[in-house]
Amino acid sequence: MNPLRQQFEQRLAQTGGTVAALADLDSLLTGRVFVSAHPVCRSWAARATCQDPREADVALTGCDAMIAETGTVVVFSGPVESRLSTLTAPTHVVLGSEAQLSPDMETVFERFADRLRPGASPASLMFITGPSRTTDIEKTLVLGVHGPKKLVFVFMEDGSGAG
């Protein structure tokens, strides 16, 4: 397996997120499903049963990059709505491909330097590391406060190939 992918999957799992195989994506889309207009989600557009991410049980979105060091999903705001669809549904399923992996946050900033110039940058750049969490009550971990309780990442490529 691609070593960056391996690190990403392992560290995402440590944050409480999960990785699912593309073949299992179908079974994740249950209840009120919101599907983002992101091109990567096009094949699942017909599965949408809900047009407003505020009311969805499951939101399927794409992403702009992933960070292996921290198991982080990076999403830019833009013409395809992403600020709510990655936040309000109890389950967030993210689609991405291996080519989007960066070793660390520095590399992401370098890769997207052009899109981050003053005046050209998206309103928001989100680094999502696992499900929404709190340990405010007696340091007990509780997932799903204001953001998703479940974060599932799905690679477009099957990971068994030699990387």
Partner: peptide, 8 residues
Amino acid sequence: RLTAYTTL
């Protein structure tokens, strides 16, 4: 390793 939501 990183706070769950780091937003620019």
